[in-house]
Simulated scan of single mutants.
Amino acid sequence: MIRELTEKDHANVMKFLLQDPSINLFIIGDIEAFGYHSPFQKLWGEFHDGDIKAVLLKYFESYIFYCKDKNHFDSEAFAAIMQSNTNPVTLSGKADLVEKFEKLPNLALGKKRVTYFAQCETKREIQITETINKATIADIDRIVVLQHSIDEFNTTVETKNMLKKAIESKTGRTYFLENNQGDIISTVSTTAENSQSAMIVGVCTHKDYRNQGLASKLMTALVNDVLDEKQYVCLFYDNPAAGKIYKNVGFMDMGLWTMYR
C-alpha cells in the first residue's frame, strides 16, 4: 500500500531513512526544514505489514526516491504518482533504485546523468594563512559574479534566491576567499544541511587563481566545521580530476547517484 505521509508517520519515517543517513540527506533535510504540509512539498510511503519500505519525496517539481530493498517496491504505483507531474519527470536517487523506473513505458524521465556519490566522516588537519570568510546575504552578489565567470556553472536568476534561502533557513553555508582588491576568488558551499549530514556544492576558483590549492583549503575548513556538528559530509562528482581532490580531503566513494532532469 502506498499513501501520503503526515506528521503522524514522522518517527517511523525517520527511523527508516536513518538506516542510510548520507544517501537520504536531501529527504531528511527537507522534512526537517519544511515538514509534511508545505505547499511545495509532499511525501509518500509504501507500507508492508505496517512497516515503511520505500519513500518518495516531491520538492516543487522534483522527486527523490529511496527504498532499502531494490527488488521489493511497487515501481508502477510510484510512477503513477510522478506521471501527474509535467513531463519529463525530474527524478533522482541511488542509481540501482531509480534506474528501475527506466523500464516503465508510461513514465517519461528527463535526461539521465550518473555521478559518483562520496562521503567524508573524518576531519583533516589544515594549514592556511589566508583569511576564510563565512558568507552572509550581503556577499551573495559577489559570489554569483564569480560563479557566472566559470564555464562549468550554470547560473540563473534562481541562483541568488537559492543562496539566500540556504543562509536564511540555515540549510546551507558558504565559505570564501578574497584577493587584495576584495574580489571573491574561491568558494565552497553546503546545501541540504540536516541534523545528520550536509552536501558540498559550489566548489569553484577564479581561473586566475587556480592550481594554488585554494579550493582544497576552503573545503577542508568547511568539512572540519560541519563535522564538529554532524556525522557525515557528502558530495557528487563526475570529473575524475575533481574526484582526486575530494579524496585528498578525505572523501570516499560510496556508490552511484542518478539524476533525470
Rank of each mutant, 00 (worst) to 15 (best):
I2H: 06
I2G: 08
E4F: 04
T6G: 11
T6A: 09
E7C: 13
K8L: 15
D9V: 06
H10L: 15
A11H: 10
A11Q: 13
N12V: 03
K15R: 08
F16P: 02
L17W: 07
L18N: 06
L18C: 05
Q19I: 10
Q19P: 04
P21I: 06
N24T: 09
L25E: 08
I27C: 11
G29V: 03
G29A: 07
D30C: 08
I31E: 02
E32M: 02
Y36E: 12
Y36S: 08
H37Y: 08
H37T: 11
H37E: 14
Q41W: 06
L43Y: 07
L43N: 00
G45M: 09
G45K: 04
E46F: 02
F47D: 06
F47Y: 14
F47A: 10
F47C: 09
D51E: 15
I52W: 04
A54V: 05
L56S: 01
L56G: 02
L57C: 01
L57P: 00
F60S: 11
I64M: 10
Y66G: 05
C67R: 04
K68F: 12
N71F: 14
F73E: 00
A79M: 02
A80E: 12
Q83T: 02
N85H: 09
V89N: 04
L91F: 02
G93K: 00
K100Q: 15
K100P: 00
F101M: 11
E102W: 13
L104P: 00
L104D: 03
L104G: 05
P105R: 07
A108Y: 10
K112Q: 12
R113S: 13
T115Y: 03
F117L: 04
A118N: 01
E121N: 13
E125C: 07
I126T: 05
I128L: 15
T131K: 14
N133A: 09
K134A: 12
T136S: 12
I137T: 10
D139G: 05
R142Y: 08
L146H: 01
H148R: 11
D151L: 11
E152M: 10
F153T: 01
T155I: 08
T156V: 10
T156M: 13
E158F: 15
T159W: 08
M162P: 00
M162Y: 14
L163N: 00
K165H: 11
E168L: 13
E168C: 08
K170R: 07
K170A: 08
R173E: 15
Y175D: 05
F176C: 09
E178N: 01
N179E: 07
N180L: 11
Q181L: 13
S186F: 05
T187C: 03
S189V: 02
T191I: 13
T191P: 04
A192Q: 11
E193F: 03
N194G: 07
S197R: 00
A198F: 01
M199S: 07
R210C: 04
A215L: 06
M219C: 12
T220M: 05
L222W: 04
V223I: 05
D225V: 10
L227D: 07
E229F: 13
E229A: 14
K230V: 09
Q231S: 14
Q231F: 07
F236C: 09
D238H: 08
P240F: 01
A241N: 13
A242P: 00
Y246N: 05
Y246V: 07
K247C: 09
N248K: 12
N248S: 13
G250K: 04
F251N: 03
M252D: 15
G255V: 03
L256K: 14
L256A: 12
M259V: 01
Y260F: 15
